[in-house]
Simulated scan of single mutants.
Amino acid sequence: MTTVPNPHSNAHAFARSDRTPLGVWWWTVDRWMLGVVTILIAIGVVIAFAASPAAAARMNIGDPFHFAVRQCVFAVAAMAVLVSISMLDVKGVRRAAFVIWLAAIAVMIALPFIGHNAKGATRWIEFGGFTFQPSEYMKPALVILVAWMFAEGQKGQGVPGVSIAFGLFAVSVALLLIQPDVGQTVLITVAFGAAFWMAGVPMSWVMLLGATAVAGLSSTYFLFPHVQSRVDRFFSPEKADTHQVDAAAIAQAAGGVFGRGPGEGVMKRKVPDLHTDFAYSVGAEEFGLVFQLLLVSLFAFVVVRGLMRAMKLSDPFEQIAAAGLFVLVGQQAIINVAVNLNMMPTKGMTLPFISYGGSSMLAMGLTMGLALALTRRRPGAYAPNEGLAKAGAYS
C-alpha cells in the first residue's frame, strides 16, 4: 500500500512536540545565528582549499591539500563543540566556564616550561602533530566568569563580585603578557571593559579603566621589542620590511569586484601567513570585493543580532555574558580585517572561523556555543514584551 505524503506535515527536522534534548535544543536555539555561523565555517573550508597548495609548497609539504583536509576536520569538530555546548542550561554554562578557565590557566602557567616557542613567543603546546593554544579557550571562559561576578556583585549580598572579577582578569592578563601575547590581551581587555560597562558601574570607573588600559597598551611598545617593531613598520613602512602586508594589499586589489576565480589567485604565493592571519586576502583575490562585503556582512549579522538578543535577556548575568561573548567575536574579526587592509599594525590574530588553525576553530566553536546557550529561549529568559518567549520566535 502506497503512503500519500501529507502536504501539511512539519518540514523541520524535529516536531515541536519532540521533547528529546536535541529536539528541545532545535526549537529554542537561534537558528538564524546557527545558520550564519555554519556558512562562515563553510567559507573557511573553501578558503583553506584555495590557500593550502601555496602554503604546503612554501613549507615543503608533499600533500598540497594538507591544510585543507585538516581544516575540514577542525570544522566538523568545531560544529560538534558548538552544538554540544549550546545545549547547556545557564548553570551548565557557568560550570563549564569555570572548569575551562581553570584548565586553561593551569596550562598557561606551565607554558614557560613545556611550551613551544615560535616567533619569539611561547603560546602553544605541541603534541601528536597538533598545537594547542590555551589562551584561545581562556578568553570566552573569562568573559562568562567576570559576567557572573559582576552580576553577583549587583545583588548586594556580600559577594565581592567586582573584586573577584578584577582578580580573574589580572591573572589572565599577567599570564598572557608572560608569553607574550599582546593581541589576546587587547581582546580580553576590551571584552572585560564592555562587561564592566554593561554591569552598570559608574561612568567614572569605566573611564578610569579605559585610561589604565590605554596606558598599559602604550607601555607594551617599550616593554616588548616585537610590538615596537610592528608599530614602527606600520607608521614608517619605508624604513622596514612590509612584504607581507604589501603582498596582501596587492592580492586584494588584483581580485577586483568578482575575483580571479577559485584557485586562480597568484599573489597568495607571496604571502607567508596566507592560510592563517591573511586568509582574508586570499579570499579577496579569488572572489573579489563581493567576497569581502559578504564576509563583513555575515560577521556584522552575528554581532548585531547577538547584541540585540543579549540586551533583551532578563537576567543580568546572561545579558552581560552573552554581550561580552559577541563583543569578543566582533572585535577579533575587526582587528584581523583591519590588519589585512593595512589599517593597523599586524597582530598575529586569526579571523574567526575563516583562518586555518585547530585551536582557533575549536575555541570559536566554544565561544559561539556558549553565546547560543545563553540566548536560547527559556521560560522567563526574555522580558514578556519582547515576544521572544512565544513559540517560533526563532523560526
Rank of each mutant, 00 (worst) to 15 (best):
F169P: 03
L362T: 10
L88P: 03
L362E: 07
G256S: 10
M349E: 08
M343T: 05
M344R: 13
P237H: 02
P140R: 08
F150W: 08
W26F: 14
H275Q: 07
G392Y: 06
V303T: 13
V245M: 09
I334V: 15
F150M: 11
M361R: 05
A383F: 09
S281L: 08
T242W: 01
S297Q: 00
V159P: 01
I334A: 15
L293G: 07
G193M: 04
A55K: 02
A104E: 01
S172L: 06
L82N: 05
T3P: 01
I43H: 03
A103Y: 02
D181Y: 03
W197R: 12
A104I: 08
I100W: 08
A50V: 03
A322C: 14
G23T: 01
A284S: 13
I334C: 12
V107K: 07
W25G: 04
F67Q: 09
Q292S: 08
N60V: 11
P21M: 02
A50H: 11
Y280R: 04
L187E: 06
W124D: 11
A251M: 09
G161N: 03
V69S: 13
E238C: 00
V37P: 01
F65P: 14
V90M: 05
I105N: 12
L187P: 10
F166K: 05
P384F: 11
I100S: 02
A310Y: 04
A121D: 08
G23E: 03
P316A: 09
Q319E: 05
I105V: 14
G210R: 00
T122W: 06
H243Y: 14
A199M: 07
F222A: 11
M198N: 10
F14T: 06
T131M: 05
F196I: 01
A15V: 10
V339D: 09
L223R: 13
S236G: 00
T185Q: 02
W124F: 07
I47D: 06
T2R: 14
S172P: 06
V214I: 15
F192G: 04
G193V: 03
A338C: 07
A56P: 15
S355H: 05
A50N: 12
F353H: 08
A110T: 03
G369Y: 05
L372C: 13
V290D: 03
F130P: 12
I100A: 07
L289K: 02
M368P: 06
L187F: 11
Q332M: 13
A248R: 02
R95Y: 15
T131Y: 09
A194S: 13
Q244K: 04
H226C: 13
A253S: 10
T346R: 00
F192R: 01
L88Q: 04
A75Y: 12
A118C: 05
G288H: 10
V271A: 08
G387L: 03
G357T: 12
M1F: 13
R230I: 14
A371C: 11
P237K: 00
C72Q: 12
